[in-house]
């Protein structure tokens, strides 16, 4: 058992390494490994390959790491907290907040919101408002099931508002909103990476701090409480980390589907454990591998047709999950 698990760890790590190199070197403009070398040690702002590496390839790779791991970890925590393998990072409705604000700024024709701040800002504000709302409710509601229901209700409610906005908006804005809702790893700039990483790190530390609580919560909130876990505090902490993870990703990349749902399930099947001290690092790395594979597909297929990352994650993810489930049953 231990041996095979070590092999999985090695495979994932090696996979990340190879996929990252592939990811950086792939693209419409040919970038050679020597370009990459000079980029690292002798940056020339006038050299087009260097500019492309700095402004496009590196931020995109970085976002694969951040978004892939954030969404997987958020999904893992939600699945554990709600004791439901169908839960994902979006059950709390954080993405609904982003989506509503983005829809407002793109579709309503509030040009000042749209042009002076940009979509990322709208998405951040939306995620923030809804995060505060969810945390308030989490503190107020007695059990997690109610919270899950409330999250779903909020999602439907804002979804309806967005639909109304969509129905009254003109074609161009509608297309812009649709594009946003398909997700993109390409909107982040080099200069933003620091801030993103900081928030990511914060969320990751909170997640790690609650790994003991998460382990006990596998048995449900009542049992966890009898095992000495402060369930109320843990719930707030876990939600905080989830909100940070998903808010960050939704703001900078739009709502990216499926990873948060698929990866934690895949990891549990692969590692055959419920120990979060293993699941957390495994989901972190697994999410990165998964999103790297998806984004490399986007890059390769972009020579034929442009595809949204959101479509690829589901197209690759769903058969994978089905395969593993069938294999496990057989």
């Amino acid at each position: 058992m231990t041996l095979s698990r070590n092999w999985i760890w090695m495979g994932i790590t090696l996979g990340i390494f190879i996929l990252s190199i592939l990811h950086v070197l792939l693209g419409e403009i040919f970038v050679s490994s020597s370009d990459f070398y000079t980029f690292l040690f002798d940056f020339d702002p006038d050299k087009i390959e260097h500019v492309i590496l700095k402004e496009f390839r590196i931020p995109r790779l970085f976002m694969c790491f951040i978004a892939g791991s954030s969404l997987s970890l958020a999904g893992l925590m939600m699945q554990t907290l709600f004791q439901n393998p169908l839960a994902g990072p979006y059950v709390l409705g954080i993405n609904s907040g982003s989506s509503l604000l983005v829809a407002l700024s793109v579709l309503s024709g509030w040009t000042f919101v749209r042009n002076d701040f940009g979509l990322i800002f709208s998405a951040l504000i939306g995620a923030g408002i809804f995060a505060v709302l969810i945390l308030f409710l989490a503190n107020f509601l007695r059990n997690s099931l109610s919270l899950l229901l409330v999250g779903i209700m909020i999602g439907s409610f804002t979804g309806a508002l967005v639909s109304i906005l969509q129905s009254v908006s003109e074609a161009n804005s509608l297309k812009l909103f649709t594009l946003w809702s398909m997700g993109s790893l390409q909107n982040v700039q080099f200069g933003q990476l620091g801030v993103i990483f900081l928030f990511y790190l914060l969320a990751l530390l909170v997640t790690m701090y609650y790994s003991k609580s998460l382990n006990a919560l596998i048995l449900g909130e009542k049992e966890a409480s009898l095992l000495g876990i402060n369930v109320r505090k843990s719930r707030i902490g876990i939600i905080c980390a989830t909100v940070l993870f998903t808010g960050l990703v939704t703001a900078f990349c739009g709502p990216i589907a499926f990873i948060g749902l698929a990866v934690p399930n895949l990891i549990r099947i692969l590692f055959k454990t419920q120990n979060h001290r293993i699941l957390i690092p495994a989901c972190l790395l697994g999410g990165v591998v998964f999103l790297l594979i998806c984004d490399i597909c986007v890059e390769l297929l972009s020579f034929i047709t442009p595809l949204p990352i959101n479509a690829i994650t589901s197209i690759i993810g769903a058969p994978m999950v089905i395969y593993f489930i069938i294999k496990r049953l057989a």
Partner: peptide, 29 residues
């Protein structure tokens, strides 16, 4: 792709039809 645009627009003097009236708004978009 934007990468291609970056490379192809290297020696371009004019850019038409941005659809956005100011540089500030372009940066925001």
């Amino acid at each position: 792709s934007f990468e291609k645009i970056i490379a192809d627009s290297k020696n371009v003097e004019f850019w038409l039809n941005t659809g956005i009236p100011t540089k500030k708004m372009m940066v925001a978009s």
